[in-house]
């Protein structure tokens, strides 16, 4: 899922200074799972905005709504009428959701309530870890399911580097060395062939250069 976390409120408050009627739009997708931008968080933020504005002596309306996914045009558009009743929208979707809502009403200010952080998962309750950097050319089949792009601090293609010590990364002793983990896993499986090869430089052209990436599926396109 896309993992996100709430923006610090003072940063949001700065952007809401002139607002009178705020729509807080939650998203029922990834950000609901990581408990940053679902229905509950939207309701909390709406109450928080009202409380903050009231304390400043200039009451503000704040209403919470949620759609199953802001990254679907139909659901994003379904928020149009509610957006029309507000003068500012705070989207609790990931960056994709913010962008889609801004496209629904290009004349309106749509603010991000979250900082979209990474592609990851829940490793224990309340702890989320990055697992995918969406580079567009997955190599997990060769690396034992451990991603050197997302989990090696240097994104190394032939690791580990000299900074790996006792299975830990030199950037932070709390971080496991991804290449150490890859080597251990592949060795345990008896699949050391890949480790003995010198991998050619990774093709980063799929990773985001050349503008926004786009996939066209002819079988699905209308």
């Amino acid at each position: 899922m896309i993992v996100a976390q709430a923006k610090p409120f003072p940063e949001l408050a700065q952007m809401l200074q002139d607002a009178r009627r705020v729509l807080v739009a939650g998203c029922g997708g990834c950000v609901a799972v990581c408990q940053a931008g679902g229905e509950q968080e939207a309701r909390i933020l709406a109450e928080a905005i009202r409380l903050w504005a009231g304390e400043q002596g200039r009451p503000m309306e704040a209403r919470a709504v949620v759609v199953p996914r802001q990254c679907e045009p139909e659901w994003a558009q379904s928020l149009g009428p509610a957006m029309d009743e507000a003068d500012v929208v705070v989207s609790l979707g990931c960056g994709v959701g913010v962008g889609f809502l801004a496209e629904v009403r290009p004349g309106m200010r749509v603010l991000p309530g979250l900082n979209t952080s990474f592609g990851g998962g829940t490793v224990s309750p309340g702890v989320f870890e990055e697992r995918c950097r969406m580079c567009g050319d997955c190599v997990l089949g060769r690396t034992g399911g451990i991603c050197p792009v997302a989990r090696c601090a240097k994104n190394l293609w032939n690791g580990p580097c000299g900074g790996s010590a006792d299975g830990r990364c030199e950037v932070d002793p709390q971080v496991s060395c991804a290449w150490h983990q890859i080597a251990q896993r592949l060795t345990a499986r008896g699949e050391t062939g890949f480790l003995e090869e010198i991998a050619p430089p990774k093709d980063w052209s799929t990773a985001g250069d050349g503008g926004p990436r786009r996939i066209v599926r002819e079988d699905l396109a209308s």
């Binding site: 009202r50 009231g54 304390e55 009451p59 503000m60 309306e61 704040a62 209403r63 919470a64 709504v65």
Partner: peptide, 12 residues
């Protein structure tokens, strides 16, 4: 003393 605004119904 608190400054608070009048009750507004916050729908969802």
């Amino acid at each position: 003393p608190r400054k608070f605004q009048a009750v507004e119904e916050a729908g969802a």
